[in-house]
Design a protein around this nucleic acid. Structure first.
Lengths: 301, 301
DNA sequence: CGAAACCGTTAAGCTCAGCTGAATGATCGG
DNA sequence: CCGATCATTCAGCTGAGCTTAACGGTTTCG
């Protein structure tokens, strides 16, 4: 009697909005394009609105479809809220899948989960290191529950209405210089002092790379990146041997610095990087958030 | 990957919460008890919470289930909102099913829909006269979209989170007396003046009956109800012939009073009856609401 | 400018989630 | 104590919704 909108079909519409094409949406949903097309046809009929409009060989969402997507997100968030509330009441041991960019996993997630596991030995954790973009995608997809992500002002990851973020920590960058670098003994060093130095950068496409180049761009130069090291330890080893310099965020500072490398604070105070706790809108993981923040606080000191 | 709660199962849980037993819920959903039981078992498993607890040969909802029902209502409201928004954008002609208690249909709904039909000839309407309790049930069930109901303070119809109400109109009661009644010529009459008069009441169980007896009870007496007339015209005919008196709400006043009956305002000003527009939470029918209110305003003058 | 690649939709047919129906045990009213 | 009622389980069937295959329109590239 009540021809209520099917949430399954809303999910499909959302996937189409995300991925742009029927084929891509189908791939994301582990379905064939045919199934996606059929579902959307049914949704269109049941709402009485045209949802798709052909543009060349693609389709674009109509105004009605965009409105529907917004409502869909609200529904998803409500369902997520329900699940969070039930999780809190459930006698079953909680299982949380946590992701974070590599440095965060090392410095924050791992110790936080260790503390949490001691408090709740019966809980199950799965930890995965994932780049921030991938983290968001996996949160949405549902293969991750919580993620530590970087707030990249250049990337609009945080505008997605399906993702909610909570502040976690803010890091400053320091210059990592070879011990025999002219500025190694200085109390502070300016970014502009490093214009001529070769930079040790992470592989292109990684956020570490982008962040550092963005900072240098803001300072007015493009870092000459001869050598590549994604792992901070590797980068420091290169620096110790005189292959260049780099900018090191707080989380990247190892417990004991290798010989031959010195850290010098920057004169500039704006190169900062903000890390956030991200989860699906509506979800609540209070214990996990508390543990992560506690671990972060211990780091910042 | 994302084992999201199934809205279909939430609907079933809601039906169980409404109807108390698996059998009754199944009946309301046009399913067998077996299907309901299986759905709830799956829901229980997928949430990890016990939802049902056996009490004798029945089941009662657990705390977790009650929490889930509250979330379910929020989800339903959100879906309803989505549908309302789409209806507004849909090129398809709108179809609205409207209910109301008989007097309201006659006095408000019918003229309102006439006006609305003139404004939107392509829209489809279905009008049904339904007692207020039934209206609410049918709104929830989905076989009705909008209903004009009475606010019965004795009945907790309006507490349901799935139903939203908007004020429509407030009526006063007047005494309908035979022309030869001692108080027929009086400017006003008190309820206590009618203690000895036989009342013409509607059939038991109907809201009109309950309302009048409740008013008399508040005034401190129980109306002696010898004759029964559900239809106001029939009631007035009885009164005209001296078979008793009754209380007539504003909507019950016919365009021209039959001979032999006079209306006398009450000295008391509290016997009022409030009518509301009810719809599913989240739903919006702005044109219908406007039309109903406009018709009501024209009545009150 | 034709062909090949790719997109979305449609038609036909199959598969499994989820229903019905029957059987069971437990409980309550009389 | 017995029949009625309620919830649940199991086996088996059915149809909603998927896949596969074919097709028409659009873009790209040789």
């Amino acid at each position: 009697m009540a021809p209520m909108i099917d949430v399954r079909q809303l999910r499909t519409l959302r996937a189409l909005a995300d991925h742009g094409t029927v084929v891509a949406a189908a791939e994301a949903l582990y379905l064939t394009p045919s199934a996606v097309s059929q579902q959307l046809a049914v949704l269109s009929k049941s709402t009485g609105c045209e949802l798709l409009e052909r543009r060349g060989r693609n389709v674009v969402l109509t105004e009605a479809a965009r409105v529907l997507v917004a409502h869909a997100d609200a529904v998803f968030a409500q369902l997520e809220r329900a699940q969070s509330d039930l999780r809190a009441m459930s006698p079953a041991p909680i299982a949380v899948r946590i992701g974070g960019f590599p440095t965060a996993v090392m410095a924050v997630v791992a110790p936080a989960m260790k503390a949490l596991r001691e408090e709740h030995p019966e809980w199950g954790f799965e930890i995965a290191d994932t780049e921030s973009e991938q983290s968001v995608a996996r949160l949405i997809e549902g293969s991750l529950d919580v993620a530590v992500v970087m707030a990249a002002p250049n990337r609009p990851l945080l505008g997605d209405p399906r993702i909610k973020v909570l502040p976690l920590l803010e890091e400053v960058y320091q210059a990592a210089l070879p011990a025999d670098h002219p500025f190694a003994g200085a109390g502070r060093v300016s970014l502009t002092d490093l214009v001529e130095d070769p930079f040790v950068l992470a592989a292109e496409g990684l956020s570490c790379h982008d962040q550092v180049t963005a900072i240098c761009a803001d300072a007015g130069f493009q870092p000459r990146g001869r050598h590549r090291a994604t792992d901070f330890s590797a980068a420091l080893a290169l620096i110790a041997n005189g292959f260049g310099v780099t900018l090191l965020p707080t989380l990247g500072v190892p417990p004991k610095m290798p010989d031959g490398v010195v850290l010098v604070p920057l004169k500039e105070d704006w190169p900062r990087r903000v890390s956030l706790i991200a989860m699906r809108a509506g979800a609540e993981y209070p214990e996990v958030v508390a543990a992560l923040r506690s671990a972060a606080d211990r780091l910042i000191r």
